[in-house]
Design a protein around this nucleic acid. Structure first.
Lengths: 252, 252
DNA sequence: CATAACGAACAAGTCTGATGTTTGAAAGAT
DNA sequence: ATCTTTCAAACATCAGACTTGTTCGTTATG
C-alpha cells in the first residue's frame, strides 16, 4: 500500500513542525487535500495528532513513543531477523512468556509453527497465535491498553504469579549497561518484572536504537538478563558492557 | 461472500453421508473440483472433516456442534435482534461479563459504542471490543479453545472470582424448564457457573432452536436466571414454564 | 456576510481475493 | 511396471472492496 508512506510523511511533518496546514501537507505528499484530510482523521483516531480547522497539531510529546500501528511497520526486516534468532534460542516443548511490543509480535509470528506453550502479554500476539494448532496458548488476564493491547494490572500479575515458565522474552524501551532494562509505562514495567520473576531464563530483544537509552520506568538490572538479541548496528561499547555483566549478546 | 453457502452445502453433505467424493461435491455445488478441494482443505483445518484421497469423511459426531465459523453466519439476523434487545436491558456504566458463543458475539458488537465495563469470555468478543474507546475492556485469563476461542480453565475461574459484575450475559447450548441451562463443554459450563456466581443479575440468550434441548453439561437451574431473551419462534409451553419459574422472558 | 475549510457523495482507478484451467507430480490400482 | 486418478502449484480471469480524486452543498470563522 502506498498510503503507509504518506502517513509516515504526514506524521513526521506534523511532529517536526508542531502543527501543519492541510494545503501544506497536500503539497508535501503530492496527494489531494481530501486525501490528506482522510489521513489526518485516521491519525487523529490513533492519537497521533489533533485536528483543527485548516490543519493538525502533533499530540506526540517529545520522547513519547509513536502509536503501535506505525511502529509495527518500521524496521520490520530487522525485527524479523531478531525474532528468528530468538526462536532459535527456544527449544521445542518449552513454556514461554512473551512480552508486548512490536518486536515481540514478530517473535510470536516466528513461533507460530513450533510446539510450545506460550503466554503472550499483548492481544496482538494472542491473535497471531490463536490459529496455531501446535501452540498451547495461554491468555493472561488484564486490561488491554488501547492501541498497544498490552495487558496490565492485577489480573495480569495474578496470571503470571500462578505460573512458571522456562523462558521470558522481553521487549523494552531502553537498555543501558548500568540502568538496565527500562520501559515507558509503569504498569508495563510491573508486568515485565512479574514475567521475570516467573521465568527461569530471560531473553531480551532490542533494536540498536534502544541501546544507551533510558525510559521512565525501571524494569530490571542488566544482570537479570541471560541473553540479549539485537541487530548488528548496536554500539560496541554498550554490547561489550553487557557481555561483561554476564549477558550473552547476539547480534544478527 | 458466496463461498459461505457452498461451505455449508459441503458440510451438510459430508455430515449426512458420512463420506463423499470430490467429484460428487463438485457436481452438487456446481463449483470446480479444485474449488471443492480448497474448501475441503479449509474445513479440514477447522476440524469439520478429514481428507482422504478422492474425498472426505465427516468428523462431526452426531449431536456435536458445528465449528464457530459456520455457526457465526447462521441466523445472523435473529442473533442481531436478540443482541439489540439485550443491549437495551443493560444500563450505561454497568459492568458486564459476556459469555462465549456466536450470539454473545453479536451482543458484544451491540455494546461497542456504549459506556460500559465488559469482560468477554471469548477472544472473538475481546477483538470485537478492543477498538472501542468507550468500553473499559477486561480480559480474563485462560486457555482459548481452538476455533471457539472461549477461555476456560483455572486462570479464567480465578479472573472471575476476583471480580463482581452487575450483569452476566450467558449463551447456552440448551434451555429446558426443568434441566435448566446446559452446555456441550464441561469446562465451558464451569466458566458459566463462575460468571453466574460473580454477577448480581443473569441474562440468558437463546435462539428458539435451543429450547427444550438438553446438552451434556449442567450449568444452572432455570431459577438462576433473571431474564431470557429469545426470538419469536420459541415454543409457548417452554417460555411459559420459564415465566412460571420466575424468569422474565423477552421475545423479539 | 464573505471566505475558506469541511465532509458527503459520486466516479475512476487500483488492488486483493476467489475461482477456474492447465499441467506436472504423486498416489493407488491393475 | 504401467496406467489411471487425484492432487496441488502456477497462471489467468473476474468480481468486489478499497483508495483516491472531484464536485458541490454545508458549516465554521473572521
Amino acid at each position: 500500500m502506498g498510503s503507509a508512506e504518506r502517513l509516515r510523511q504526514i506524521t513526521d511533518a506534523v511532529r517536526a513542525a508542531g502543527s501543519v496546514g492541510v494545503a501544506e501537507l497536500a503539497a508535501l505528499t503530492g496527494a489531494s487535500e481530501m486525501t490528506v484530510r482522510r489521513d489526518l482523521e485516521a491519525l487523529a483516531e490513533q492519537g497521533v495528532l489533533e485536528r483543527y480547522r485548516g490543519g493538525a497539531r502533533s499530540l506526540l510529546l517529545r520522547g513519547a513513543e509513536p502509536p503501535f500501528a506505525l511502529r509495527s511497520q518500521e524496521g520490520l526486516e530487522v525485527k524479523r531477523r531478531i525474532a528468528a534468532e530468538v526462536a532459535g534460542l527456544i527449544a521445542d516443548g518449552e513454556s514461554v512468556v512473551l512480552d508486548s511490543g512490536t518486536t515481540c509480535l514478530e517473535v510470536a509470528r516466528a513461533l507460530e509453527h513450533r510446539r510450545l506453550t506460550v503466554m503472550p502479554l499483548s492481544l496482538h500476539a494472542v491473535n497471531a497465535l490463536s490459529g496455531a494448532p501446535q501452540v498451547t496458548l495461554l491468555v493472561p488476564g488484564g486490561r488491554p491498553r488501547p492501541g498497544e493491547l498490552a495487558l496490565t494490572g492485577p489480573l495480569t500479575a495474578a496470571s503470571l504469579a500462578a505460573l512458571r515458565f522456562d523462558t521470558a522474552v522481553l521487549g523494552c524501551c531502553g537498555v543501558h549497561a548500568t540502568d538496565g532494562l527500562t520501559a515507558y509505562d509503569l504498569d508495563d514495567a510491573a508486568v515485565k518484572q512479574a514475567a521475570i520473576a516467573s521465568s527461569r531464563r530471560v531473553i531480551a530483544v532490542a533494536e540498536a536504537a534502544k541501546f544507551g537509552r533510558t525510559a521512565l520506568a525501571h524494569v530490571a538490572p542488566a544482570t537479570a538478563l541471560h541473553a540479549l538479541v539485537t541487530d548488528g548496528t548496536a554500539p560496541d561499547e554498550e554490547t561489550g558492557a553487557l557481555t561483561r555483566a554476564g549477558v550473552t549478546v547476539r547480534q544478527v
